[in-house]
Write a protein that binds this DNA or RNA. Structure first.
Lengths: 244, 244
DNA sequence: CGAAAAATTCTTGCATACAAGAATTTCGGC
DNA sequence: GCCGAAATTCTTGTATGCAAGAATTTTTCG
């Protein structure tokens, strides 16, 4: 009943998480605990439906229950966990219906970002976003899926930042968490990556031209296409769980 | 140094907050603490920039620091508070620029809600939303500003619910917190209430007809008009602080 | 042997104790 | 009398203790 190996697979996952040094500064525990736990959830290391035992998390993260509980509360608010009264929180299910709901919202939000960004796009900003696009292509040629995801996300994020609207960025960040989770869950190369690259270039062109309506429309469609493909991949994955 | 009257005006504000009975159920403190504190911030009872002393909040709310700290974390994530490392959290400033940023986001979000809701609008749902509209008018005739605000919010909320998109509702709730704060801050009857009523009726008509494009456009414009008026009122208020 | 009930164990929710950093006050020097 | 530095006080960040509710195991009865 005390053997560490079989109490739960969670132990193994957490064992390799780098722990903050004892000689740390005060006030850094909450943030780092949230980041570690969030990463485990978004990457799928903690599977949907998994129960979170606070005591166990404390042991593995090397912190007390206070920061762990705070992190759980934070991630619950972000929609990554579900809280049950007087019971263990569980990792939120990755509901395909919810991801379909995400499509409408994210595409609309990014469409707005594109509209606003086009009006503010300097040559420098467009060049910077273009660089992120090429970084994404580079990762693709190298077969580096995580780097590809990251650069793709940075491309979109930078456009939202360029919109100059802090509320929009805030909302986008919240939505991006869920999108990331879905992406990691599929863990496949998007089948439409070639088309995605074309769409990125067309978005860049619209931004560069300062054409708000066009940038908005192209971003909306690009996001919709991408997420629709993701949903299709997830449905496939559900149909045949072990990627044949 | 111990006289309760002058340590801070916060004490007076909190003194009248109904406290949960000692014979309560376990697990209700976090939620109620968040609700109480949020209400104080949204209504403006806690002014923007005010520092939150945890110990004092504990005394006044009759709970320990744990739920208070959790509530502070929650409201910080909602953007109502700002956290400073190793220092007291403060009530977020009510920045007019941020409210202007809200206009674009909220109008877009509600526009999407209208688009989706129109496709799902049954006669029953439209009637229900119409009822909320009439309730709002009733509060107007009675000069009941809080009731007016509440019914207006319920009208909009119900449309978002009707969209059937849970992600959209989630985002809308987050945005509505900030909108409410701005509304309470102005604490004026909207000058354009007569126009707002007309717009509501036109929105209802579009929903009833199932015209997604029209419902979307009308909601977008209605929200934009309303929030623009709000911003104008706030700018006025800043120019001449004591409403002459 | 199976099932239901009681007792035990475990887990969360809240309160509190302790430590590190910030703010304030006081004391010394000029 | 004023400025600066040291000491004190105060406040937040983290850990732990205690109680209520849930889960599990054991025991007892049919």
């Amino acid at each position: 009943m005390d053997s560490p190996a079989d109490t739960t697979p969670l132990a193994a996952l957490l064992a390799k998480v780098p722990q903050p040094e004892p000689g740390r500064r005060k006030g850094a525990l909450h943030g780092s605990t949230v980041a570690q736990l969030r990463n485990l959830i978004v990457t799928g290391a903690l599977a949907p439906g998994a129960k979170l035992n606070e005591r166990e998390l404390c042991l593995q993260l090397g912190v007390s229950r206070t920061p762990v509980r705070e992190a759980i509360k934070t991630l619950t608010q972000d929609g990554l966990l579900r809280a049950l009264p007087n019971k263990s929180s569980v990792v939120a299910e990755l509901d395909v219906g919810e991801i379909e709901a995400l499509i409408d919202v994210v595409s609309t939000i990014e469409g707005l970002a594109g509209e606003l960004a086009a009006a503010r796009a300097t040559d420098e900003a467009v060049a910077e976003i273009g660089m992120l696009h090429y970084r994404m292509m580079l990762h693709h040629t190298r077969d580096e899926l995580p780097g590809y995801f990251e650069a793709n996300k940075a491309f979109h994020r930078r456009i939202v930042e360029l919109s100059g609207n802090p509320v929009l960025l805030w909302i986008w960040e919240l939505l991006a968490l869920r999108v990331d989770r879905a992406r990691y869950s599929s863990n496949l190369w998007p089948k439409r990556w070639k088309m995605a690259i074309q769409e990125h270039e067309q978005i860049l062109a619209a931004l560069s031209a300062g054409d708000a309506a066009l940038a908005s429309q192209r971003l909306r469609e690009h996001v919709r296409n991408g997420l629709s493909g993701l949903v299709a991949a997830l449905k496939d994955r559900i149909a045949k769980p072990d990627g044949a």
